[in-house]
């Protein structure tokens, strides 16, 4: 199992154990993580699973696709650490990953 921690804008952390290969939007919705809606069901069409990846993990992430990059333009508080959680899958390299949910999504 891979551990992923979601931290909301108020600083509340939720550590969740995730099976390898599961996308990090699905697991957030299943575990009632506030701030992650996943309205489009995980096809990078809506930007409601926008997260800020903890900078320490930035280098370990898969590269961002063109579609994800475009959709993030719809997010209010995009920064250099922004990703769509639906495009990130749990993997051993990401064990311990920390994701912050932006204030605009609460």
């Amino acid at each position: 199992m891979i551990k992923v921690t979601y931290i909301d804008h108020a600083g509340t952390a939720r550590e969740i154990e995730v099976e390898e290969g599961v996308d990090l939007m699905d697991v957030a919705v299943d575990n009632l993580v506030p701030g992650i809606d996943g309205d489009c069901g995980g096809v990078a069409a809506c930007a409601t699973c926008h997260v800020h990846v903890d900078p320490a993990w930035q280098d370990k992430l898969p590269p961002m696709g063109e579609e994800e990059d475009a959709m993030l333009e719809l997010a209010d508080d995009r920064n250099e650490n922004s990703r769509l959680a639906c495009q990130l899958k749990a993997s051993p390299e990401l064990d311990g990953l920390i994701l912050h949910t932006p204030i605009g999504q609460h």
Partner: peptide, 10 residues
């Protein structure tokens, strides 16, 4: 063309 989709919305 996701970038055009986003541009049009904007």
């Amino acid at each position: 063309r996701p970038a055009e989709f986003v541009a049009a919305r904007n």
